[in-house]
Amino acid sequence: MISAAWFDQIISLLAAILLLISFAMLSQRRILSLIELFAWQGAVLSASTAIVAYSANLHHLYYSAAITFALKVVALPWLLHRLIRRLNVRWDVETMINIPSTMLIGLALVVFAFNLAQPISQLATGAARHTIGIATATVLLSFLMMITRRKAVPQVIGFLAMENGLFFAATSATHGMPMVVELGIALDVLVGTFIFGIFFFQIRETFDSLDIRHMEKLKER
Protein backbone atom coordinates (compact mmCIF):
# COMPACT_ATOMS: atom_id res chain seq x y z
CA MET A 1 0.00 0.00 0.00
CA ILE A 2 1.32 3.39 -0.94
CA SER A 3 1.20 5.94 1.83
CA ALA A 4 -0.67 9.26 1.70
CA ALA A 5 2.58 11.20 2.00
CA TRP A 6 3.76 9.54 -1.17
CA PHE A 7 0.69 10.76 -3.05
CA ASP A 8 1.33 14.24 -1.76
CA GLN A 9 4.82 14.03 -3.12
CA ILE A 10 3.58 12.99 -6.54
CA ILE A 11 1.00 15.76 -6.63
CA SER A 12 3.65 18.29 -5.63
CA LEU A 13 5.82 16.98 -8.43
CA LEU A 14 3.00 17.30 -10.93
CA ALA A 15 2.31 20.82 -9.68
CA ALA A 16 5.92 21.73 -10.26
CA ILE A 17 5.71 20.31 -13.79
CA LEU A 18 2.57 22.36 -14.37
CA LEU A 19 4.39 25.52 -13.36
CA LEU A 20 7.34 24.57 -15.54
CA ILE A 21 5.05 24.08 -18.52
CA SER A 22 3.49 27.47 -17.85
CA PHE A 23 6.91 29.07 -18.06
CA ALA A 24 7.70 27.06 -21.16
CA MET A 25 4.54 28.37 -22.78
CA LEU A 26 5.42 31.89 -21.80
CA SER A 27 8.79 31.58 -23.53
CA GLN A 28 7.68 29.53 -26.54
CA ARG A 29 7.95 31.27 -29.90
CA ARG A 30 6.50 28.63 -32.15
CA ILE A 31 2.80 28.15 -32.29
CA LEU A 32 2.78 24.41 -32.90
CA SER A 33 5.00 23.82 -29.91
CA LEU A 34 2.68 26.05 -27.92
CA ILE A 35 -0.25 23.77 -28.71
CA GLU A 36 1.89 20.75 -27.83
CA LEU A 37 2.74 22.31 -24.50
CA PHE A 38 -0.89 23.05 -23.89
CA ALA A 39 -1.71 19.40 -24.52
CA TRP A 40 1.03 18.35 -22.07
CA GLN A 41 -0.42 20.71 -19.48
CA GLY A 42 -3.78 19.04 -19.94
CA ALA A 43 -2.18 15.62 -19.56
CA VAL A 44 -0.49 16.61 -16.29
CA LEU A 45 -3.76 18.06 -15.05
CA SER A 46 -5.59 14.87 -15.92
CA ALA A 47 -2.96 12.75 -14.18
CA SER A 48 -3.05 14.83 -11.01
CA THR A 49 -6.85 14.66 -10.95
CA ALA A 50 -6.71 10.88 -11.30
CA ILE A 51 -4.20 10.61 -8.45
CA VAL A 52 -6.30 12.81 -6.20
CA ALA A 53 -9.28 10.64 -7.08
CA TYR A 54 -7.37 7.46 -6.15
CA SER A 55 -5.88 8.83 -2.92
CA ALA A 56 -9.08 10.43 -1.66
CA ASN A 57 -11.22 7.62 -3.06
CA LEU A 58 -13.55 10.03 -4.86
CA HIS A 59 -15.17 8.38 -7.82
CA HIS A 60 -16.53 11.46 -9.53
CA LEU A 61 -12.98 12.78 -9.91
CA TYR A 62 -12.20 9.83 -12.21
CA TYR A 63 -14.86 11.11 -14.60
CA SER A 64 -13.44 14.51 -14.21
CA ALA A 65 -9.96 13.26 -15.11
CA ALA A 66 -11.35 11.42 -18.11
CA ILE A 67 -13.18 14.51 -19.34
CA THR A 68 -10.05 16.60 -18.85
CA PHE A 69 -8.05 14.11 -20.87
CA ALA A 70 -10.55 13.86 -23.65
CA LEU A 71 -11.05 17.59 -23.87
CA LYS A 72 -7.67 19.13 -23.16
CA VAL A 73 -5.30 16.50 -24.46
CA VAL A 74 -7.25 15.27 -27.45
CA ALA A 75 -10.09 17.49 -28.54
CA LEU A 76 -8.82 21.03 -28.06
CA PRO A 77 -5.29 20.49 -29.42
CA TRP A 78 -6.81 18.71 -32.39
CA LEU A 79 -9.21 21.60 -32.92
CA LEU A 80 -6.42 24.14 -32.68
CA HIS A 81 -4.22 22.14 -35.07
CA ARG A 82 -7.05 21.96 -37.52
CA LEU A 83 -7.68 25.66 -37.15
CA ILE A 84 -4.08 26.49 -37.89
CA ARG A 85 -4.05 24.23 -40.89
CA ARG A 86 -7.24 25.78 -42.22
CA LEU A 87 -6.07 29.30 -41.55
CA ASN A 88 -2.64 28.38 -42.87
CA VAL A 89 -0.83 30.35 -40.21
CA ARG A 90 2.27 28.66 -38.90
CA TRP A 91 4.10 31.79 -38.10
CA ASP A 92 6.41 32.36 -35.23
CA VAL A 93 4.73 33.92 -32.27
CA GLU A 94 5.38 37.63 -31.97
CA THR A 95 5.46 39.12 -28.52
CA MET A 96 4.94 42.69 -27.37
CA ILE A 97 7.68 42.48 -24.76
CA ASN A 98 10.81 40.44 -25.39
CA ILE A 99 10.95 36.95 -23.93
CA PRO A 100 13.55 37.51 -21.14
CA SER A 101 11.62 40.47 -19.73
CA THR A 102 8.42 38.43 -19.85
CA MET A 103 10.18 35.66 -17.92
CA LEU A 104 11.33 38.15 -15.27
CA ILE A 105 7.81 39.50 -14.88
CA GLY A 106 6.61 35.90 -14.66
CA LEU A 107 9.07 35.22 -11.81
CA ALA A 108 7.77 38.24 -9.95
CA LEU A 109 4.23 36.96 -10.44
CA VAL A 110 5.13 33.54 -9.04
CA VAL A 111 6.61 35.18 -5.94
CA PHE A 112 3.47 37.29 -5.64
CA ALA A 113 1.22 34.25 -6.03
CA PHE A 114 3.06 32.27 -3.35
CA ASN A 115 2.91 35.25 -1.03
CA LEU A 116 -0.76 35.50 -1.67
CA ALA A 117 -1.42 31.84 -1.07
CA GLN A 118 0.60 31.77 2.15
CA PRO A 119 -2.24 32.44 4.60
CA ILE A 120 -4.38 29.78 2.92
CA SER A 121 -1.50 27.30 2.72
CA GLN A 122 -0.92 27.52 6.45
CA LEU A 123 -4.46 26.34 7.07
CA ALA A 124 -4.26 23.56 4.50
CA THR A 125 -2.75 20.13 4.97
CA GLY A 126 -0.69 17.90 2.74
CA ALA A 127 -0.26 18.63 -0.92
CA ALA A 128 -2.65 21.59 -0.87
CA ARG A 129 0.07 23.57 0.89
CA HIS A 130 1.98 24.10 -2.33
CA THR A 131 -0.62 23.59 -4.95
CA ILE A 132 -2.69 26.71 -4.25
CA GLY A 133 0.32 28.97 -4.81
CA ILE A 134 1.20 27.10 -7.98
CA ALA A 135 -2.36 27.18 -9.29
CA THR A 136 -2.56 30.94 -8.71
CA ALA A 137 0.81 31.37 -10.39
CA THR A 138 -0.41 29.34 -13.39
CA VAL A 139 -3.48 31.56 -13.72
CA LEU A 140 -1.42 34.74 -13.55
CA LEU A 141 1.22 33.47 -15.97
CA SER A 142 -1.42 32.49 -18.49
CA PHE A 143 -2.97 35.90 -18.13
CA LEU A 144 0.46 37.43 -18.74
CA MET A 145 0.76 35.33 -21.89
CA MET A 146 -2.56 36.67 -23.15
CA ILE A 147 -1.37 40.23 -22.61
CA THR A 148 2.02 39.88 -24.24
CA ARG A 149 1.01 38.02 -27.42
CA ARG A 150 0.10 39.92 -30.55
CA LYS A 151 -1.70 37.22 -32.47
CA ALA A 152 -5.12 35.90 -31.71
CA VAL A 153 -4.38 32.14 -31.53
CA PRO A 154 -1.80 32.32 -28.71
CA GLN A 155 -4.22 34.53 -26.80
CA VAL A 156 -6.83 31.84 -26.95
CA ILE A 157 -4.29 29.27 -25.77
CA GLY A 158 -3.47 31.59 -22.88
CA PHE A 159 -7.15 31.78 -22.04
CA LEU A 160 -7.47 28.00 -22.05
CA ALA A 161 -4.33 27.61 -19.95
CA MET A 162 -5.82 29.99 -17.42
CA GLU A 163 -8.77 27.69 -17.07
CA ASN A 164 -6.32 24.83 -16.48
CA GLY A 165 -4.84 26.71 -13.54
CA LEU A 166 -8.24 27.24 -12.00
CA PHE A 167 -9.15 23.62 -12.51
CA PHE A 168 -5.95 22.51 -10.85
CA ALA A 169 -6.65 24.69 -7.83
CA ALA A 170 -10.13 23.20 -7.59
CA THR A 171 -9.10 19.54 -7.76
CA SER A 172 -5.91 19.53 -5.76
CA ALA A 173 -6.90 21.88 -2.97
CA THR A 174 -10.56 21.13 -2.42
CA HIS A 175 -10.97 17.75 -4.14
CA GLY A 176 -12.88 19.13 -7.05
CA MET A 177 -16.09 20.92 -7.76
CA PRO A 178 -19.48 19.22 -8.10
CA MET A 179 -19.76 17.21 -11.26
CA VAL A 180 -22.40 19.47 -12.74
CA VAL A 181 -20.15 22.49 -12.46
CA GLU A 182 -17.24 20.65 -14.02
CA LEU A 183 -19.34 19.45 -16.90
CA GLY A 184 -20.59 22.98 -17.39
CA ILE A 185 -17.10 24.41 -17.46
CA ALA A 186 -15.91 21.73 -19.85
CA LEU A 187 -18.74 22.54 -22.21
CA ASP A 188 -18.07 26.26 -21.90
CA VAL A 189 -14.43 25.78 -22.83
CA LEU A 190 -15.37 23.70 -25.84
CA VAL A 191 -18.00 26.11 -27.06
CA GLY A 192 -15.65 29.04 -26.37
CA THR A 193 -13.02 27.46 -28.59
CA PHE A 194 -15.53 27.01 -31.38
CA ILE A 195 -16.62 30.61 -31.10
CA PHE A 196 -13.02 31.78 -31.13
CA GLY A 197 -12.48 29.71 -34.24
CA ILE A 198 -15.38 31.40 -35.97
CA PHE A 199 -14.06 34.77 -34.88
CA PHE A 200 -10.61 33.98 -36.31
CA PHE A 201 -12.12 33.42 -39.71
CA GLN A 202 -14.14 36.60 -39.43
CA ILE A 203 -11.12 38.63 -38.31
CA ARG A 204 -9.02 37.28 -41.14
CA GLU A 205 -11.82 37.95 -43.58
CA THR A 206 -12.01 41.57 -42.46
CA PHE A 207 -8.35 42.45 -41.95
CA ASP A 208 -6.53 39.84 -44.07
CA SER A 209 -4.52 39.00 -40.99
CA LEU A 210 -4.91 37.63 -37.50
CA ASP A 211 -2.82 40.38 -35.97
CA ILE A 212 -4.99 42.05 -33.36
CA ARG A 213 -3.22 45.36 -33.84
CA HIS A 214 -5.58 45.84 -36.78
CA MET A 215 -8.50 45.95 -34.39
CA GLU A 216 -7.23 49.16 -32.80
CA LYS A 217 -8.97 51.16 -35.47
CA LEU A 218 -12.29 49.89 -34.19
CA LYS A 219 -12.23 52.37 -31.32
CA GLU A 220 -14.20 55.56 -31.26
CA ARG A 221 -12.77 58.67 -32.95
Binding site: F143, I147, T148, Q155, I212, M215, E216, K217, L218, K219
Partner: peptide
Amino acid sequence: QQGRIAVYLL
Protein backbone atom coordinates in the same frame (compact mmCIF):
# COMPACT_ATOMS: atom_id res chain seq x y z
CA GLN B 1 -10.88 53.02 -24.61
CA GLN B 2 -7.62 52.37 -26.42
CA GLY B 3 -8.79 49.85 -28.96
CA ARG B 4 -5.94 47.47 -28.05
CA ILE B 5 -6.93 44.13 -26.61
CA ALA B 6 -3.63 43.88 -24.77
CA VAL B 7 -4.39 47.09 -22.88
CA TYR B 8 -7.88 45.90 -21.99
CA LEU B 9 -6.40 42.64 -20.76
CA LEU B 10 -3.90 44.65 -18.77
